[in-house]
Amino acid sequence: MITLKLDGREVRAKKGQTILEVATENGIRIPTLCYLEGLSPKGTCRVCMVEIANRNGKLVPACVTPVEEGLEVITRSERLTRLRRTIVEMLFLERNHICAFCVSNGHCELQDLAVELGMDHVTFPYRYPGLAMDLSHDDFGLDHNRCVVCGRCVRACSEVEGAFTWGFTGRGIDTAVATDLGIPWGLSETCTSCGKCVQACPTGALFERGMATAAQVKSPEIIREVTERRPRVF
């Protein structure tokens, strides 16, 4: 067992657990976005950054940082809220997140984060990229304008379904998810149409076709339910 401090409170943890897991067990919420229970954590969205008080205030992503004996973790502070808010601002300005027209309005993790962090407006220039949609699949659709490049679809597809349909293409601000080697989703020969990517997606980027505005409710917890009886592979 390891003893560490979360926001000043002494807690005990098992070796190998992450800061996020220990915080969750102890009823402390740390905001996340690219993290999804059942998938390997990647630490890339940087929303779950926490401060290590006894390492000069160094910031680390809670979802991938293992606990250590004596660690003093701060999960909430003015500094962290400001930081997380700016990161969420960046996600909003990056593409075209128009909640009022979105199938996921009211059921969106990005929107929830903005509310939680008090991000009521964006203080940097919007980018307004002109991105295409992929509506070639019979059952599902992809709208890059609403994607936050969290990669949950990519991991759900490879780690849970084992289809390896989803991947990334491009780099920098042009990074995007793609099916097979960039062919339209509907032409993919590897896609099993299982829909796990859609359920794993935190925003309205992946959706079931035929949904009206605000009608797309997701069940990301199915990823945990499908995987919890499997041996842990990561």
Binding site: R46, V47, V149, F168, I173
Partner: peptide
């Protein structure tokens, strides 16, 4: 920028 993390990509 590789595009992996939000602060650098955006």
């Amino acid at each position: 920028s590789c595009g992996q993390c939000t602060p650098c990509r955006v």
